[in-house]
Each structure stands twice: as C-alpha cells, then as structure tokens.
C-alpha cells in the first residue's frame, strides 16, 4: 500500500534538513541546547512531538524502530508513535532493544546496554535544567554561556535541606564533557549512569520548547552532587518478581483488588527476554491468570 499523501516520515525534506542541521550542531557541542523551528505534528505536545520530529529527521527506510514509554512498548503513547512511523515511513518496528536501530523513549533508557550504531531519541518536556530557579531565558542563556552553574547546586542544596538527601529522583541534572549542564529528560536517575560513555548516539528533542540537544557516542556525562552527598542511583531490595533480575529499575504494580503488590521490571522487553531465557521470578504465575503471591528473598 502506498500513502502518497505523506512525505517519508511525515515531515517534508526541507524541514528534515533543518532539524538535521540542529542535530549536527547539537552533536558538535554536546549538551548544548540548539534552538530549532519545531513543527506542528499530528499529535499533542505531551506526546513527545520533539522526539517524534528528531526521529522523523533521522529515520531511513532500512531502520528498525522501537518506541518505549516508561520502559513499556505497549502503552497508548508508544503504540501510537510506532504506528505513526510504520504508516508514514513504512519502517520495520520491534520491541527488542537489541534489534532496534532507532529507539524513541519517554522516561527510560533500556536495561540492555546500547551498542554502536544505535540511536536513542529522548522525548523532552522541559530542556532547561535551570528553569526551576531562573525563569528568565535571557539569563539562563548567559549562565550556560559563562558556565555559571552555581545555581544548579542551589537546587540540590534545597533538596538536602528539605529531605536530608538529594531527593531529585528523575530529570537529575548532569554535566556533559565538563562543560554544559543538561537535563536528561524525566528518566529516573537510575538511568543516568547509562548515558555516560554510551557507544550509542543520544538525541534529545523538546517540541513545545523548540530545543534539540545531543550526546555523541562515548561522551563523558557526570551526575551533579556534593562531596558529602555523592550521587547515588535508586536501589531495590528485591529482584523483579517475574524474571528475577537485579540491578534493574522496577515498577510497583498492584496485582489484585486487595492491594497486593509486586515489583517488576519497568523495561518490559528486558523482562520478557529474560523469561524467554528461562529466568523465573518469585511472583511469576504458575498457571493461568492466577497470580501467586510469594515473598522475595
């Protein structure tokens, strides 16, 4: 079936060239927010139109696309974006991290390490890490330009003063190549270390705010902290109830109407892959739909 009403990947070639120029500039200056002329997309801003435009600009006919939302491939948002590109670009799609050449994501980095040649595209709602403390765009631009980043530590200071520890758990600010402070988008800080030195190309698109930024492969990315309150990732006491994985990011899910809970991988592909490999967690149903509750070790 042909779809003559669409250009390949929806955007016209001139727009894609413009976006690619911004991406290239972003790659040349890791962590720097490059303005771009964000276009209206046939979906609301909250759906990641920045990420969608970046994906549209880099997608080729041979690409294999994976789209995740909070780690899952099957949310409405992820399914819609995948369907959008399947329709407008006719590209192959996958849920397997290892098989994908382009991964568009909202709120997670896959657990399986990314490899050279892969591109991960982050959907970004607010690209400016200083926005909370300094609403003036003219001022934040100067702060980035002159590396006056004391302000970002004011935010971390407030966290510790209020909570006794750095309570920021997502969109945790990082410093890129010892130069630009960057908002990694609302991924859990658990995923921050994955950005550092990744062999994959990482692109960030903010549609409403009209900004693109990038981390080329093997970029040095450091999470900000204090000497006496060093950066730490979330730790989970129990393994995934389904695949027994440890050292992964878990979501709490309610398993029945009596409020029973279990912790399972937020990365659904990772969890499924492990189960296919024979890993079994303590909460895995023995048969049918009946969930057996069992305490994790």
């Amino acid at each position: 079936m042909t779809l003559p009403e669409y250009n390949f990947a929806y955007l016209d070639e001139q727009t894609k060239r413009m976006i690619r120029r911004s991406i290239l500039k972003g790659i040349a200056i890791p962590g720097y927010q490059v303005p771009f002329a964000s276009r209206e997309m046939p979906m609301p801003y909250g759906w990641g139109t920045g990420g969608v435009q970046v994906t549209a600009a880099i997608l080729g006919p041979d690409d294999v696309l994976k789209v995740i939302d909070q780690g899952a491939d099957d949310t409405t948002n992820a399914v819609s974006i995948r369907a959008f590109f399947a329709k407008t670009a006719n590209v192959a799609t996958t849920t397997k991290t290892a098989d994908a050449t382009v991964i568009q994501t909202r709120h997670r980095i896959p657990e399986a390490p990314l490899s050279a040649g892969q591109v991960i595209v982050y959907q970004v709602p607010i690209p400016e890490p200083l926005r909370f403390l300094e609403p003036r765009e003219t001022e934040t631009r100067v702060i980035h330009g002159l590396e006056e980043y004391g302000l970002i530590h004011v935010k971390l200071y407030e966290d510790i003063a209020q909570h006794g520890h750095i309570a920021t758990t997502y969109a945790y600010p990082v410093k890129v190549e010892d130069r630009y402070v960057m908002d990694p988008s609302p991924i859990p800080k658990f995923d921050n270390p994955k950005m550092n030195g990744s062999p994959a190309l990482q692109l960030f698109g903010a549609g409403r705010e009209k900004r693109i930024y990038a981390l080329p492969p093997f970029t040095h990315v450091v999470s900000l902290d204090f000497e006496d309150h060093p950066f730490e990732v979330q730790k989970f006491k129990q393994p995934c109830a389904l695949c027994n994985a440890t050292g992964v990011y878990l979501d709490e899910v309610v398993t029945d109407d009596r409020g029973s809970r279990m912790y399972v991988c937020s990365d659904t592909d990772h969890c499924e892959t492990r189960r296919e490999e024979g890993h079994r967690g303590p909460g895995l149903p023995i048969s049918g739909a009946q969930t057996v509750k069992e305490d994790a070790a």
Binding site: E148, G150, L151, H153, V154, Y157, I160, F226, E227, D228, H229
Partner: peptide, 12 residues
C-alpha cells in the same frame, strides 16, 4: 549559600 556554590564550594 548561593554565592559559595557559585565560586565552586561543593561540600554541603
């Protein structure tokens, strides 16, 4: 504390 952080103090 802001000015201290601005000149590089990193010990909470």
């Amino acid at each position: 504390g802001e000015r201290l952080m601005a000149i590089g103090d990193r010990h909470y």
